[in-house]
Amino acid sequence: MKFWDWNFTFEILPLLARAALVTLEATVIGFVVAAILGLCFAIGRMFGPKWLSIPLAGFIEFIRSTPLLIQIFFIYFVFPEFGVEIDAMTAGVLALGLHYATYCSEVYRAGLANIPRGQWEASTALNMSTFHVFRDVIIPQAIPPIVPALGNYLVALFKDTPLLSAIAVLELMQTAKIIGSENFRYTEPITLVGLIFLIFSLIAAALVRAVEVWLRRRVTHS
């Protein structure tokens, strides 16, 4: 038996490509959830009333201090006990989004805390509503500096998607495992999965860098 079989490689490539789409889908949706929910967490924690900010802080700590895999299992296997049936992909994406939302919320918090007090005061003096202050003044200034940190979490979330294989989502890792066990050959599928992850991670990092440069130019205009 050869160490590396090129015929086998080309045979399984389409299967893995299809699985890569599932991985990408989980990453994109998961990160959108994380980015939006994370911002809500940060704002609720920093500016919300006590009855919201204190439980929220506890919840964030709880999620951050427990493994993602357990959260995935919990949503997929335990939620149905309470009558909440979710398919594997949705459960996985939800867990990924929620888990990374707590990390993103810390990043947002740093970004929001860095806005000078004068910006808030000027907004008050102009009689702006809280909604418009956040949408037009605070958030547009808070986000650009934290894009690199958010980008890191995008890549980290992407690299955590193989955990979804634990609840049988047909993403890259699960597909590679199935190919391996059906053909008794693991070298090619697992190596290819690793390569696909590497390529996507590099592309994602480059994209984040590009967004960062674009945002910085938009803000400073110098």
Binding site: P116, G118, Q119, E121, A122, L126, N127, M128, S129, H132, D136, V137, P140, Q141, R218, V219
Partner: peptide, 19 residues
């Protein structure tokens, strides 16, 4: 305390529009 991400004109338009 101008809004640094808005042009001079935008600074003057923001509140009249939203408020």
């Amino acid at each position: 305390n101008l809004f640094p991400h808005m042009s001079a004109l935008k600074n003057c338009m923001e509140a009249p529009c939203t408020v």
